[in-house]
Design a binder for these strands. Structure first.
Length: 573
RNA sequence: GCGGUUGUAGUCCAGUGGUUAUGACGGAAGCUUCCCAAGCUCCUGACCCGGGUUCGAGUCCCGGCAACCGCACCA
């Protein structure tokens, strides 16, 4: 991070506070690290980002959106693995009270201390005479410091709950509902936006690591044996900058090439890496400062089989803003195990198969006399056995916990034909997961420009995401100029396309305010608007070029609409 | 969490232990036919929190909180 980068992030943060994009939370009471509030402009920008995301995933892809609880019972995270894996082992010095990562204190003695249990670590302290690095005091018992916020559901402490660290689990626990809603067909996609919580030990870098943060997650349920994507052809020419985990060099290739060369594992993953690029660029992320980096094996989350991060180059360095993970069958398998529910998909074959199956059949005539009263249980055990269990003509089964060896006269291996209509499979999950706050910050940083010579700041936000679409000014706030300006402003202002009236200060100052807020266009009512040959016309100014055109007052709503939807460009006016 | 740096109006910054804390920008009211942060008048607004030292603390000391940088962490 250079001094210029420092300056840039500080100037941007100052602008964000001044203009009302974001404010550090609870500043009144001294502030809390890793928490930020969204001001009027910031919330609007954030909502616009979410709308673009919806347009792509609900609109183009036809996925469905749900909203689930942020407080989850303990069982959910026991099953998801977060309770065990999303924790650090921590110990406190009994003398000075300083906390330490227990696994870090013993890393010189063991190859992978992060897999050790609390008891192993306690013992390791004794075996290797590990004491407090600060004061030399005795270390206390090793505990789990879970990064999830814990709470109680209802009075007392009987039902333990946690604030979710990701929205994904709310989708997985609703799998059966969603599966039925989607007519029991694969693939289908579900999206959810909302808050997640991680009790970070040391939040850093402004909005990049927050304790309470916003996500936009998409969970895509696919057939594990069919990771093709029907609309892949539409995506195959999208260009990507990739950083595979096989080397340190970035490579430029299209989605189609990346999948063909197995750089990206399959079509689904490739399609959504491409989609993510389109999404981010549409928001205003600079393609030259965007790359996709594949996770190294040891870096992968406990649930992930493969993962590509979209990384943006910020003043903080390359920063993950979206992760596209292949979670495999981890989540559904685990929830199935822990809940006892069948979370599989019945995959019907195109035509039922006649399958020849080998089975072990008990020979009851021989079993009866040999085992008498026990023979029924033995026969049942034989029916459970598989042909490959037969060794040297003999079969060993377990009855009432004891092994029973049977001679070849006790059973027969037969071949039968069965009609099989399909098979049960656990769907795989592909997850494009977007860090909304990080994307928000990236959009701001990539839109930010500062002219050092003029000391002039412009946010080049894309009109689609800009919080305010139009500024409307009277040249002077008198002689009825203000009346017309207010009328024009009211005629176009809506909740989605905000127009702002400003009559305060000089005209240049008002343009400057709007440039700093990222407003793409401004309209000014002057004396020519009221009388003379140009009566009933106003000027419209383009933020990025400062160019002006004269347009008729009556055309303002239509022109603004055309500019916003991209039907017309400013230069065509 | 460790080490370093730093906390003064909305923002940026000045301030030898000693009156009512300097200024700029911003914001507000007004004047000026004012199209790119122009000028003028007037107003607004701050010493992060808690202890301590002292006759007296924005200033010195201790603790806390917060920010920035490096290390560590970041499923």
């Amino acid at each position: 991070m250079t001094a210029a980068d420092d300056k840039k992030s500080e100037e941007l943060m100052s602008l964000c506070k001044r203009r009302g994009f974001i404010w550090p939370s609870y500043e009144l009471y001294g502030g809390i690290a890793g928490m930020y509030d969204y001001g009027p402009l910031g919330f609007s920008l954030r909502n616009n980002i979410v709308e673009v995301w919806r347009d792509i995933y609900k609109g183009r892809e036809g996925f469905t959106e749900i909203d689930t609880e942020t407080v989850n019972p303990r069982e959910v995270f026991k099953a998801s693995g977060h309770l065990d894996k999303f924790a650090d082992k921590i110990t406190y010095c009994t003398k000075c009270g300083a906390p330490f990562r227990a696994d870090h204190l013993v890393k010189e003695f063991y190859s992978n201390p992060d897999t050790m249990s609390e008891k192993d670590l306690d013992q390791a302290f004794l075996d290797h005479n590990v004491v407090c690095p600060d004061c030399g005091g005795k270390l206390g018992p090793v505990e789990d410091f879970n990064l999830m916020f814990r709470t109680n559901i209802g009075p007392g402490s009987s039902r333990v709950g946690y604030l979710r660290p990701e929205t994904a689990q709310g989708i997985f626990v609703n799998f059966l509902n969603l599966y039925r809603y989607n007519r029991e067909k694969l693939p289908f996609g579900v999206l959810q936006t909302g808050r997640g919580y991680r009790n970070e030990i040391a939040p850093r870098q402004g909005m990049i690591r927050m304790r309470e943060f916003n996500m936009m997650e998409v969970e895509l349920f696919v057939d594990p044996e069919d990771k093709t994507w029907s609309r892949f052809d539409e995506m195959k020419d999208e260009k990507l900058t990739l950083l595979p985990n096989t080397g340190d060099e970035t490579v430029e290739m299209t989605v189609g090439e990346a999948v063909a060369k197995h750089v990206v594992a399959n079509e689904v993953l490739g399609y959504f890496v491409g989609t993510t690029k389109q999404f981010l660029v549409r928001l205003g992320v600079d393609p030259a400062r965007l790359r996709f980096r594949q996770h190294r094996k040891e870096e992968m989350a406990h649930y992930a089989k493969d993962c590509w991060d979209a990384e943006a180059l910020l003043s903080y360095g390359w920063t993950e803003i979206t992760g596209i993970a292949d979670r495999g069958c981890w989540d559904l398998t685990r929830h199935s195990e822990f809940s006892g529910a069948d979370l599989s998909h019945f995959k019907r074959f195109d035509t039922p198969r006649e399958e020849e199956v080998e089975k072990v059949k008990p020979n009851r005539k021989s079993l009866g006399p040999a085992f008498k009263g026990q023979s029924k249980a033995v026969a049942a055990a034989v029916e459970q056995a598989k042909p490959e269990d037969v060794k040297d003509g003999r079969l060993t089964v377990t009855v009432d916990g004891k092994p029973v060896e049977l001679g070849s006269e006790m059973f027969t291996v037969i071949k039968t034909k069965e009609k099989v209509n399909g098979e049960r499979i656990i769907p795989n999950v592909i997850e494009p997961s977007h860090g909304l706050d990080r994307i928000f910050y990236t959009v701001l940083e990539h839109a930010y420009s500062h002219d050092d010579a003029k000391d002039y700041t412009v946010l080049h936000l894309k009109p689609e995401v800009a919080p305010v679409k139009l500024g409307v000014f009277p040249l002077m706030e008198k002689d009825n100029l203000d009346v017309l300006a207010k009328q024009i402003c009211a005629s176009v202002h809506t909740a989605r396309a905000a127009a702002v009236y400003d009559g305060s200060g000089t005209i240049g100052k008002r343009y400057a305010r709007m440039d700093e807020a990222g407003t793409p266009w401004c309209i000014t009512v002057d004396y020519d608007s009221l009388s003379g040959p140009q009566k009933d016309t106003v000027t419209i100014r383009d933020r990025d070029t400062a160019a002006q055109k004269r347009i008729a007052v009556k055309d303002v709503p239509q022109i603004l609409d055309d500019l916003l939807t991209g039907r017309r460009q400013f230069t065509d006016l």
